[in-house]
Design a protein around this nucleic acid. Sequence first.
DNA 1: ATCTTGAAAAATGAATACAATTTGCTACGC
DNA 2: GCGTAGCAAATTGTATTCATTTTTCAAGAT
Lengths: 232, 232
Amino acid sequence: MNQIAAPVRAPLHEELTARIREMIFSGELVGGERVPEQKLCDRFGISRTPLREALKVLGNEGLLDLLPNRGARVAVLKPEDVDEIFPVMGALEALAGELACRRLTETEFAEIRALHYQMAVHHAKRELTPYFRLNQQIHEMILDAAANPTLANQMRSLSGRIRLARFRANMTQARWDQAMKEHEDMLAALEARDGARLADVLKRHLENKRLTVKQAIAEGVAERGGEPAVYD
Amino acid sequence: MNQIAAPVRAPLHEELTARIREMIFSGELVGGERVPEQKLCDRFGISRTPLREALKVLGNEGLLDLLPNRGARVAVLKPEDVDEIFPVMGALEALAGELACRRLTETEFAEIRALHYQMAVHHAKRELTPYFRLNQQIHEMILDAAANPTLANQMRSLSGRIRLARFRANMTQARWDQAMKEHEDMLAALEARDGARLADVLKRHLENKRLTVKQAIAEGVAERGGEPAVYD
DNA sequence: ATCTTGAAAAATGAATACAATTTGCTACGC
DNA sequence: GCGTAGCAAATTGTATTCATTTTTCAAGAT
């Protein structure tokens, strides 16, 4: 009775959801625009059936707006959406922090600390892109340490919607410095395994992210093709 | 340019997702069992295409397990899932409470208070079913007052997964009394518009719900057809 | 008796075909 | 010139068909 992994490839509709999701994140499919059903079928060399299944799923995720008889459009992130989403993200990040504090091993903490100080270097040198990368890694490690797949899924879903706004955060120096300081507080709270304090820091951190993102959207920054959305 | 509502009926796949979702909640489709594709098509008098679109969506929601080439099965709620889901629900409820405190009008508060005292009567009389109904209404009013659709959606999704476990909570008298006491704390925090305190109460309240539900699952209660899942 | 083996039947995955709706465009009226 | 009616093309919704995989089950081997 071997069950050594399924040698079967994933169903088409799954692969398609993943690929179209990436097309949205990468900006290949632009917000507000119609998703060309036939074009995508030709491009992927498949029929409409599995493609449409994928569209339904992405619609349910909030990445597409499905207009009856009028096709699917890439959802656009409105400023109100940002105000809605970030508080929820904040509450979930706070929970992730609390759980992480309980379960974090010394080794994991050491890894986060290493990432943190590396990030501090990039902050000092004003290197935004690597700073963002490490920032994201730290948050992911906290989420992993929380060891709650349901929580991770919910956050992934919300992150996806935020990524609908494709921009490079235009942080003021002051806000960047503040973010870095918040990260120092995070590290301290983690080291002390002080879940309540970490939760608090993370909530404030997310509130500041909200402001950064809103400003970026308001300024109508970017939409440059291919660039991922980054923010802190 | 009238846009006075769309006179077009909802697409089939949407209606189907709703109906199948209800079939799962009502217990007509039992956890772990295969979802009979052809049977449902015959029953609804439709073809497989829209039905399968609905299944993909419900799979993505976590209500169905989609096994490649082996059909869809109604997801079963494992004890570990309960441990995962309730902390997330707790964090979200806490946020809902905080937001509600900020936005609640005097009128809305009065309505909640009325529901609360009505619920207290049912508690005193040991009338479980109406107690549950009012309990749910109160939580819904808080969620409405929070005025955050994204938050509401996330909570609805998690509630759905909890409802996979169809049982009638087998609360001990002690736990029921405790729940009622927590509701009194909630009302007090709401009246004082003390968001932090309400958040705290709600988190503890959800933690107790988690225990109640886990116990019910462990005891293998119910699965009686048609009865909705209730708990507090 | 229990365990394979191997079709036949059933179910699923994907493609194609058909129906209904929307969109685009042209021609016409005012 | 502007707006509108109406038809053709394109697009979407649904059904049907075909291909592939899984399941079932009975016959045969050990």
